[in-house]
Design a protein around this nucleic acid. Structure first.
Lengths: 241, 241
DNA sequence: CAGTGGTCTAGACCACCTT
DNA sequence: AGGTGGTCTAGACCACTGC
C-alpha cells in the first residue's frame, strides 16, 4: 500500500476515534511530515484523499479542519461501495432473485442507438426481469446491452447478477453512470407484476452505464412501486477548477 | 492561475478540439513535461484533474487515454455548475419566481432536529414556497433553516433565491448535499397548488444541504408533478482508495 | 526488455490567514 | 510578521504493461 494511502487511513481512524475533533484542525503538515517520517508532499497527498472523501477541508493560510458531518460521510461511504445494480444496493442483508420475463436479441431503437452510441445493425440483448427482494416482487427492469460489448449472456447469468458477470467473468470495470429519475403513472405491466393499483405512483430510474474507458454498455429502466424504495445520493463538493 | 490548472485547461481544450482522439492516448508525461517546460509532478497534477473530471483515465504501465464519453462529461459539467436550488438549475434560460405560502419562525420537529443537528430550542425558519418557471407553477418547496446559521431572511430574499443570498450576502460556501428521491401520491396541497389530479404522481426530492465545514443549514422537500420535471445525475467513478 | 504511470523526496517560493 | 496550506522542482525508484 502506498505510503500516502496508509497515512490517510491512519488519519481517518483518528477522526473516527475523535482524536481529532469535528470543527478542529489537524496538526499542520510540517508536523505530520515529521511524525510520519515523510515529506510534506506525501502528507499533502494523504490530506487530499481525506478532503476528497469529505472528512476534512483545508483553508489556505489557516489549516486543515475536520468536517462536522464527517460521521455521515463515513456512513454513506460504506453503504455505497456499490455499483448500482439492485444486487449491489441490497445484496448484503437481503436475498435478490429474478424472474426472466423476456430475453432475446434484437436491433436497438433510436433512443437506444443514441444512448449506446451504436447503429441499427449492432445487435443488442433485450432483457426484461422482475426482481425480488426477499421473495417480494420489487422492481421491473428493462435492460438493453450491445452483444459485442457484453457477450454470451445466459439465462443463468440473468437469474443472478449481470454486474457480477461483467466484473468477475468478463473482467471489465465499470465507470460512470448517467441517470434520470422520474415519477410515472403505472402502466399495465406495472400493475400486473408490481401488484399496484392505478393510483400507485411508480419511481423510475433510467440509466446509461459506461465502462472505464467511456464505452456505454447498458441502457436500462428500473420501475418500482412508490412505497417500495427511494433513491439516495450524497453529492460531494468539488471545489476544484 | 496555478500552472497545473492552466495545463489541465489546455489539455482539455485539445480533447474538445479532437487533437487528442477518444480512445487514444495522450503524449506521455515526460514529453508533456518537456512541452510545457515543467516537471513531471506538475503534469501529473494536471492529468489528475482531467481524470477526476472524467475526461481521461490513466493505466499504470500503459498510458493516459481519452474517454469515449468525454463529450457527455463536458456537456454535463456545464449544465451542473450549479448548486441545486431551482434557481441554479433552471436560471439560465428561464424565469424563476416564487409565491410565499408560509414564512414563520418556529421550533424544529424531530426529523429536522436530527437532520440539522440542533435541539428543540434552536429556532428555525419554516418556509413554504410555490415556485414558478416561466409563470407556470412548477414545484412546492418546504424549507427549514436554523436562524443562527442563516440569519435575517426576508420575504424579499424568498421571492428570489435563498442560495444567492447565502453565497453572495452571507458569503458562505455550500458543501455537500444528501438527497432522497421518491415518488409519492399527491396530497391536498399538491392538488391545490400544482394543479394535479389524484392520479398524478409527485416526484419528491428531500435534501439536507451542508456548508463547506459540514454544518447542515437546510432541510427541505421539493414536490413537483410527475410531468413537470425529472432529476438528472451523472455519477462519476472514483477508483481511489 | 523498454516505456509508461505511480510514488516519493527535500527543499524552495508563494498566497493567504491570523494577530 | 509568523504560520499555514498551495504549488513547484529535478530527480529517483518502483510497479505495471506490452512487446
Amino acid at each position: 500500500m502506498a505510503k500516502y494511502l496508509e497515512i490517510a487511513h491512519q488519519l481517518s481512524e483518528r477522526i473516527n476515534n475523535k482524536e481529532y475533533l469535528a470543527g478542529q484542525s489537524l496538526p499542520d503538515q510540517k508536523n505530520l511530515a515529521t511524525e510520519f517520517k515523510t515529506s510534506r508532499m506525501t502528507i499533502q497527498k494523504a490530506i487530499d484523499v481525506l478532503n476528497f472523501e469529505g472528512l476534512t477541508y483545508s483553508v489556505q493560510g489557516s489549516g486543515t479542519y475536520v468536517k462536522k458531518n464527517a460521521d455521515l460521510i463515513s456512513d454513506f461511504k460504506v453503504r455505497s461501495d456499490q455499483y448500482v445494480g439492485l444486487t449491489q444496493l441490497f445484496g448484503k442483508n437481503h436475498k435478490i432473485t429474478s424472474h426472466i420475463i423476456e430475453f432475446y436479441i434484437s436491433n436497438p431503437n433510436e433512443a437506444e442507438q443514441q444512448a449506446l452510441k451504436i447503429n441499427r445493425n449492432q445487435a443488442v440483448y433485450k432483457i426484461t426481469r422482475l426482481r425480488y427482494i426477499d421473495n417480494d416482487s420489487h422492481a421491473l427492469e428493462y435492460t438493453t446491452m450491445p452483444t459485442n460489448v457484453i457477450p454470451d449472456i445466459t439465462e443463468e447469468i440473468l437469474k443472478n447478477s449481470i454486474y457480477n458477470y461483467i466484473r468477475n467473468d468478463l473482467n471489465l470495470s465499470i465507470g460512470a453512470a448517467y441517470r434520470t429519475i422520474s415519477a410515472e403513472k403505472p402502466n399495465d405491466l406495472d400493475q400486473k407484476h408490481l401488484n399496484c393499483k392505478i393510483s400507485d405512483p411508480i419511481l423510475q430510474i433510467q440509466q446509461t452505464v459506461y465502462l472505464d474507458d467511456g464505452k456505454p454498455f447498458e441502457y436500462s429502466y428500473t420501475r418500482q412501486r412508490f412505497d417500495k424504495g427511494k433513491f439516495v445520493i450524497l453529492e460531494p463538493t468539488h471545489p476544484n477548477v
